[in-house]
Simulated assay, not measured.
Amino acid sequence: MNQPDDPNSLQELLDRLRDGTNGQRRVSVGDILAVVGERSFGPLALVAGLVTLAPLIGDIPGVPTLLALMVLLTVGQLLFQRETIWIPARLANRSMEQEKLDKGLDWLETPARFLDRWTRPRLVFLVRGPGQYVMAVLCLLVAAAMPLMEIIPFSANGGGLALAAFGLAIIARDGLLALFAALTTGGTAWFVLTNLPG
């Protein structure tokens, strides 16, 4: 599901996002997909998670759900080996201000440098072959629950962290990080289930 020209680090992905959207007044979901690579599962999950976690962006009502819908549509189609990815024009055209995206990316610079120092190839069997498909299914479950997470305070942050960790695990070929992502998914699910309204 990943491609040969996928980024090799979180810093490289942030640089691609910044360079690929530079000079635009607004950045759409379609623009982000074009920069990330619509057939690249790891970078796609990572971007969805990072944007959900980033201040000023992830706090906008509806943005986590919008990104989750992007993950559901694209990763779901990749699981079924579709040659081309289709997303509705209404979703592709949804946008945010370039300034807010830039601020979010700036905020992520320091965590990106830290994480890139600590991630490396290990337990690779968890992020390649069948392991990658297991992670894709877990990402779909997180994305499907994101609308519910938006009404339970702080749970969307857990979902965003899980998506980001799954994506970075695939990019860095880090199975240990994939295990952390799976634990984060379980912890977030427990938090959501124990805090459901009513």
Rank of each mutant, 00 (worst) to 15 (best):
A143I: 04
R26N: 08
V124T: 15
V51M: 14
T188Y: 08
M70Y: 01
V27T: 02
N93P: 00
L123Q: 14
L168S: 01
V137L: 12
V124L: 04
L163W: 05
D102E: 15
V192F: 13
A164K: 01
R18T: 10
R117C: 01
P153A: 10
L179F: 05
V47I: 10
R173Y: 03
G175L: 05
D102Q: 15
E109C: 02
W107K: 10
G187D: 07
L72N: 13
V63F: 14
F125A: 15
R16M: 14
T65K: 10
A156L: 05
T84S: 14
S95E: 13
N2I: 08
I151G: 05
A162L: 02
E109G: 01
P7I: 10
P197T: 04
G49D: 03
L141C: 05
T21M: 09
V35D: 14
R128H: 03
L10H: 04
T184R: 04
E150W: 09
G20D: 13
L196H: 06
F154I: 09
P130N: 03
V192Y: 13
P55N: 07
G167W: 03
A34H: 11
L91K: 05
A89I: 01
A182T: 14
I152D: 03
R173D: 13
L108M: 15
T110C: 00
